[in-house]
Nucleic acid binder design. Structure first.
Length: 581
DNA sequence: GCCGTTTTCGGCCCGACTGTTTTCAGTCG
């Protein structure tokens, strides 16, 4: 089993956790965590690079020592240093540090004094009031520990971006109505458009921070106040979502926006540039000595470290700072670039809007084209169409399409990839289609090798033009099938099969890192909503956000082209079939 | 453990809030 970058990152993170618990040098701990980040966000497989005998490229935060350790992990699957640490520090303690309010120091302290290693033992110790007896801890800390253990039992997952947006919208309006409030922006991972968010960070520019804190804490949906100060308040809403509100003056708004948008790693990276230039960046501004030299806008703040403004979706410290320094930031795609949708269902299969309703909804979005892609027969749960019914449906789509001058309706199908890699439609029907979207819908539990060869076989089929939702994952529901994605991406580039960025907010498949990895090997993409209702055409925005996080530009995305451009860029249908058309 | 436009040694981003203790350490983002 090949070692993935994520495996290496997990080992480094575990080393960091154990080093921290053993009281090791905090900067050394940080070095391991930084290395883990660096490895995890690197788009090529380090194992592949090493096994093929190439040099490991220079990665940020990885020096000679850690490079050697990556080699050791790839070659042996293990790290001797980790084994050594595991024999010295009880590994159970790592889980305790994940409890909010408990870090390595306190976990170690409680372990040393009471021998507590597990959550259960911790709960017992807290209930019998043994925690408060430890010098440096107290009654409040003990109660907080119990509260956190209780909360854990009804564990809150990261929420999907769409749910965070729905929750935040009324709260933003509520805060905007407060006297003295000038601007309200949801920052954090929400503004970076991550597929899920752990909490919602709201930045308020105002002249009366204390009032804003009081009014926010009194928001009717607040279930619990976790912290409340003069500038910052943290609450949990009834929905379980955590919300932070931070208030600053208008003159600091740009600096605060940079700080509060993150990511943390991006901020650290630009602050380090600041340190080299003898300036200090914080949420109030940029300072040279005591003198404030910027802070009102984000552009001003970036300019002090000689960087152009960087799109929030790129702020992950995954190379955007180097790109910005060298003037090579990508011109990432925008919603307005999208000219049509290539994946949509209707009431004939598992959709909830009629063909005409879907077409009219696409027209109202000013699309130039819309592909109707009903399921094929194997997907029985979605009322997939047998060849005969599919042929009838294609005729209906063609006829309906002729009624509309503003848009071209493409006859498509979402063709099931069967377990042997063949396509779920006979050639004579494949030939009638304008667009062929292929996807896996069952047998998720094949081995990685079986699943990979199944999908590769489908991609080698000359009729396969688009691979839809390539991993099959659903956010917070299932992780997707095991498949060799780098091999899929290479095949996509080689055969000219476009990879779908599925815009369903629960799919967003491919994800950001995979989109970028596929782009780097030369693959092309489509962004499609997989709509089952007219209202879902709006999901295009989510797909575009994910694509932006994956550094995709207009030229990478085929449905940003005119109909003519799209059709000439999609993989060509087999010549033999075309010749007798 | 990494890193270098004052450096190969001596730094390593920066501030808010909490709880504890009485001036600050720990945690978090």
């Amino acid at each position: 089993m090949a070692i993935t970058n994520n495996d290496i990152a997990a080992i480094f993170n575990r080393v960091a956790d154990l080093l921290e618990l053993s009281g090791g040098n905090e900067f050394r701990v940080r070095a391991y965590r930084g290395a883990a980040m660096s490895v995890a966000s690197f788009s090529q497989s380090l194992a592949d690079i090493i096994i093929s005998g190439q040099e490991i490229p220079k990665l940020a935060g990885i020096g000679k020592d850690l490079e050697g350790k990556i080699g050791e992990i790839v070659k042996t699957g293990k790290l001797a240093q980790l084994k050594e640490l595991e024999s010295q520090v009880p590994t159970d303690l790592i889980e305790l540090t994940h409890l909010p309010g408990l870090g390595a120091k306190r976990v170690r302290l409680i372990f040393d004094k009471l021998g507590v290693k597990t959550i259960d033992a911790l709960e017992k110790a807290a209930r019998s009031e043994k925690i408060r007896a430890i010098r440096g801890l107290g009654e409040k800390t003990e109660k907080n520990i119990l509260a956190e253990i209780e909360k854990r039992k009804g564990l809150q997952q990261n929420v999907k971006l769409i749910d965070a947006i729905k929750t935040a919208a009324p709260l933003v309006e509520y805060l905007k109505a407060v006297d003295g409030v000038m601007q309200v922006t949801v920052a954090g991972s929400y503004r970076r458009r991550k597929e899920t968010v752990r909490d919602v960070d709201i930045l308020v520019a105002c002249s009366n921070a204390k009032t804003v804190m009081d009014v926010f804490a009194a928001y009717p949906q607040v279930k619990q106040i976790l912290a409340k100060g003069l500038k910052k308040t943290t609450v949990v809403l009834e929905s379980g979502l955590q919300v932070d509100v931070r208030a600053v003056s208008e003159s600091s708004y740009g600096a605060a926006l940079v700080y509060f948008t993150g990511s943390k790693e991006h901020n650290v990276a630009i602050r380090k540039i600041g340190v080299r230039k003898k300036i200090k960046l914080n949420e109030y501004g940029v300072f040279r000595g005591k003198r404030r030299i910027a802070g009102k806008t984000e552009e001003d703040v970036y300019a002090t470290v000689d960087l152009p403004w960087i799109e929030p979706e790129l702020r992950e410290d995954r190379g955007e700072i180097d790109a910005a320094t060298s003037g090579k930031l990508p011109h990432i795609i925008e919603l307005d670039d999208i000219q049509g949708d290539l994946h949509a269902h209707t009431t004939t299969t598992d959709g909830r809007s009629s063909l005409e309703e879907m077409i009219e909804a696409a027209i109202s979005r000013r699309y130039k084209y819309l592909a109707i892609t009903e399921h094929t027969q194997h997907v029985t749960v979605a009322n997939g169409l047998e060849p005969k019914a599919m042929r009838k449906r294609l005729a209906e789509i063609e006829k309906a399409g002729q009624k509309y001058k503003e848009i071209t309706v493409l006859k498509g199908a979402e063709i099931d990839i069967l377990s042997d890699g063949s396509l779920d439609l006979p050639e004579e029907i494949l030939e009638e289609l304008d667009i062929r979207v292929c996807a896996v819908h069952y047998k998720f539990n094949l081995t990685k090798e079986e699943q990979t060869s199944r999908i590769l076989k489908a991609m080698e089929n000359p009729w396969c033009q688009i691979l839809a939702h390539p991993t099959g994952r659903q956010i917070n529901i299932r992780s997707g099938y095991e498949v060799d994605l780098p091999a899929i991406f290479r095949a996509a580039a080689q055969h000219g099969v476009a990879l779908e960025c599925n815009a369903q907010p629960a799919r967003l498949d491919l994800n950001d890192i995979n989109l970028r990895a596929a782009k780097e090997v030369g693959a092309k993409f489509v962004i499609s909503t997989d709509s089952h209702h007219t209202s879902e055409l709006e999901f295009m925005q989510y797909g575009v956000w994910q694509a932006r996080r994956g550094w995709l530009e207009k030229r990478d995305v085929l449905n940003s082209q005119s109909l003519k451009g799209l059709l000439s860029s999609l993989r060509k249908a087999p010549q033999a079939a075309l010749s007798h058309k």
